[in-house]
Structures are given as structure tokens and as C-alpha cells.
């Protein structure tokens, strides 16, 4: 079972909090985006391991872009 965590809105990637292979739980912050002059944590809704991390700090993500894959 793998879950894609996608960006809900256009944003800058301000901080990447997790690394590939990290264990995460439901509600854990993966990255922090910056948009609408706010720092918006992106949280996972599933527990597992960070299998893919497709963004780096400073990237711009569009709505629907995959940020990470949790397995």
C-alpha cells in the first residue's frame, strides 16, 4: 500500500522535515510549504516509511504535484 501526498496549492517548499526511509505516523509533518504568507505544514494521513521524496527546499510546487510517497 502506498499513499501519495500531494500539494493542495501553489507554494514554495520552505523546509523538508523528513528524509527518505524515515518512519512516519498519521499526522506527522513531511515538509513545510510557504504560501499565502504562511508556513503550512504538509502532514501525512497514513503511517509508513517515506519511500519517495520528490521535492527539495526552494522548489515551487503546483496544485496536485506529488510531494512524497508513503509506503
Amino acid at each position: 500500500m502506498s499513499d501519495e501526498v500531494v500539494a493542495e496549492m501553489v507554494a514554495n517548499v520552505w523546509k523538508v522535515v523528513v528524509a527518505m526511509g524515515d518512519r512516519v505516523d498519521d499526522g506527522d509533518t513531511l515538509v513545510i510549504l510557504e504560501s499565502m504568507k504562511m508556513e503550512i505544514p504538509v502532514v501525512t494521513e497514513s503511517a509508513g516509511t517515506v519511500a519517495e521524496l520528490r521535492v527539495a527546499e526552494g522548489d515551487v510546487v503546483q496544485e496536485g504535484d506529488v510531494i512524497a510517497v508513503i509506503e
Partner: peptide, 8 residues
Amino acid sequence: NPLRLGGC
């Protein structure tokens, strides 16, 4: 809810 879409 600021957590989602910044609360927009």
C-alpha cells in the same frame, strides 16, 4: 482551518 490551503 489554516492547516488546509492555509485556511483560505
